[in-house]
Write a protein that binds this DNA or RNA. Structure first.
Lengths: 196, 196
DNA sequence: ATAATGCACTAACACTCGTTAGTAATTATA
DNA sequence: TATAATTACTAACGAGTGTTAGTGCATTAT
């Protein structure tokens, strides 16, 4: 019979989640059906349930995988002794690079979290709020130390994160600009706005 | 029997679209059902079809209403003799204000256009691409005239539009910051990045 | 060799979906 | 007041939803 596990070093569950991430991004979580997904995996819909518990479990896995990755990185930056501008640049570059080479996952965590069932939804939103708060704390500390311009930290965080998440609308027209150029252009714009 | 048209100066179709915009924004186009919508309007689902032709007609109406409003404004700005920085500020402020007081509509045009059926989908994306191109042309002209910093125009447009569309994640925590403050903070950050 | 597990299969359940037909009730026009 | 046009209603359609039960084959462990 048709077997899953095409690639080595990845469980069937991981294959399903990878295919699902592509599908959820293209059609949206609600519009993507399990039969859709099964077809992409090369299996009947019912067979998916030998590896996952539910459709929304897939969404949970994706959302929290991304959230954890960002959070881990943030903690490292917080613990480092770098000046504020460097900290921000590190964070911005990580966000851009995640957006570029884990596009599907990041996109879903950004746009499809609405469909998380409780209590995961609240959990996710709390983590998100917490992340932004700590980012804004970094900026605030930088302002207090006179390292960066006295801009409203909350607005700055909003602008920075939103600008990066907007890269998705660039993904579709990759031809004109390449990734490194985009990254450096974007960093320049966003960091310039923080300098004194 | 239960009648629609609660407010004067608005046809029943407009009432339906207004309620739908709220619903589509909250649950997403795919997850919002016609029976959901009908209940909010105070009518049976089938009755909606005396006023609209299909579910996706509602989405089309919303998306193109927003697109046209932005396009009209852009044409006025293009035709004006203002310096580049003023042009950009006018556009940025319009975007922010649209986001603030036509939130539901703008949000849907921003996030739910995926679900437009062809040929409306292509049409919409063309308009969007065109809009961004013309914005970036304004910046390019400004750079050529030496009025603003020599930043990559495409990246700048991406950052500006994305930053503004990210206001939606602020909408939910309105308490801390008020609208005018957010607008002026955001304009400051975004315009500062363009100055020489 | 035998038992045990893993996994894909078919079939089906219990919905929900957008939408249409046909009819009754209401409103506007004359 | 009689007639025409709107518009809301009930009932139902066919298709699609996530998910479960039960079955049998294939690989692995004993």
């Amino acid at each position: 019979m048709a077997k899953i596990q095409s690639k080595r070093n990845s469980t069937k569950k991981e294959v399903i989640i990878e295919k699902a991430s592509r599908l959820f991004r293209e059609k949206g979580f609600g519009a993507a059906s399990m039969r859709d997904l099964a077809e992409h995996v090369g299996v009947e819909a019912a067979s998916l349930y030998n590896h996952i518990q539910s459709k929304s479990e897939i969404l949970q896995t994706i959302c929290f995988k991304v959230a954890n990755e960002f959070m881990t990185n943030l903690e490292q930056v917080e613990a480092s002794p770098q000046p504020t501008l460097r900290k921000m640049e590190t964070i911005i570059r990580l966000h851009i690079r995640m957006m570029l080479d884990q596009y599907e996952y990041v996109y879903i965590a950004d746009h499809e979290w609405r469909h998380l069932p409780e209590p995961y939804l609240s959990n996710f939103l709390n983590q998100r709020r917490n992340y932004r708060k700590r980012l804004s704390d970094i900026l605030e500390a930088g302002i207090a130390k006179g390292e960066i311009k006295a801009i409203d930290p909350y607005t700055a965080v909003l602008v920075i994160l939103s600008a990066i998440s907007g890269i998705d609308s660039w993904q579709r027209s990759r031809k004109t600009t390449n990734a490194e150029t985009l990254e450096s252009n974007m960093v320049k714009y966003l960091i310039e706005g923080l300098k004194k």
